[in-house]
């Protein structure tokens, strides 16, 4: 019953009031501090900002100067533009260049934790009210321990920690941006970048910058959406 109510709330709360909070969860930004700790106890701190605007989601990695803009088109295909802020340039991946659309992968980009995975966890107590209303979650499974708190209005975690085989990742929300202009600006700020198709990288090998971008572009980022329970698709 509780899970049923949760789903109903989520399905209508994009533009409606959630627990007395008139927040447009389709248009917002969330700034996180992320700490990775490996099995040897060595920690690395990073920052990630996630911007959402309708069918687009933008992940910014300020410390590495890379940003990724994902677009889910009307045919449920994914399109990606990978930006390199140091060079004002980017690589564009057409839908055909991308893996087949996977709803969970999209949800992981959109809200870090897919709804199905959230539902698989044990829901705890709530804290705060209106836009700050959050519910605790925890769970273990497949060698993974999860604990965190979920902001219902924003549809994002306020904090989230996963631990597996001695390593852990910890996400802490630092700032929630709800100003629609600021969100639009985040998406528009890179419009002037010179883009190249992924398929054209090989034809521009004499461009050392492009070679570097290509190498940077395919290096897996250490900061990834947290994996919960049954795992997921890392980007």
């Amino acid at each position: 019953m509780h899970r049923f109510l949760f789903l109903i709330l989520c399905s209508v709360c994009s533009h409606a009031t959630y627990a007395g909070c008139a927040l447009d969860r389709q248009t917002l930004g969330a700034r996180y501090t992320v700490v990775f700790t490996d099995a040897k106890g060595v920690s690395q701190e990073s920052e990630v900002t996630i911007w959402r605007m309708k069918s687009r989601v933008l992940w910014e990695y300020p410390l590495s100067g890379i940003a990724e803009s994902w677009h889910r088109n009307v045919r449920e295909q994914l399109q990606l533009v990978r930006y390199f802020d140091q060079y004002d340039r980017g690589i564009e991946y057409y839908p055909a260049d991308m893996p087949a659309y996977d709803p969970q992968s999209w949800e992981r980009l959109w809200q870090l934790v897919p709804a199905a995975e959230l539902e698989s966890l044990e829901a705890g107590a709530t804290h705060g009210d209106k836009c700050q209303l959050e519910r605790g979650y925890s769970g273990t499974g497949h060698g993974l321990e999860v604990s965190g708190a979920w902001l219902g209005a924003a549809g994002l975690p306020s904090r989230w920690k996963t631990r597996a085989t001695g390593a852990s990742s910890s996400w802490q929300l630092k700032e929630l941006v709800t100003d629609a202009k600021a969100v639009a600006q985040a998406f528009d700020s890179r419009e002037h970048y010179q883009l190249i198709d992924y398929a054209d990288i090989g034809d521009n090998e004499s461009d050392p910058l492009l070679l570097k971008m290509a190498s940077l572009g395919v290096v897996e980022h250490k900061v990834q959406a947290p994996r919960v329970a049954h795992g997921g698709h890392n980007h």
Binding site: Y93, A96, M98, Y198, A199, G217, V218, H235
Partner: peptide
């Protein structure tokens, strides 16, 4: 069948 669908993993 799309040769370019290889972005996801590093070289």
């Amino acid at each position: 069948t799309n040769s370019d669908a290889s972005y996801a993993t590093p070289a």
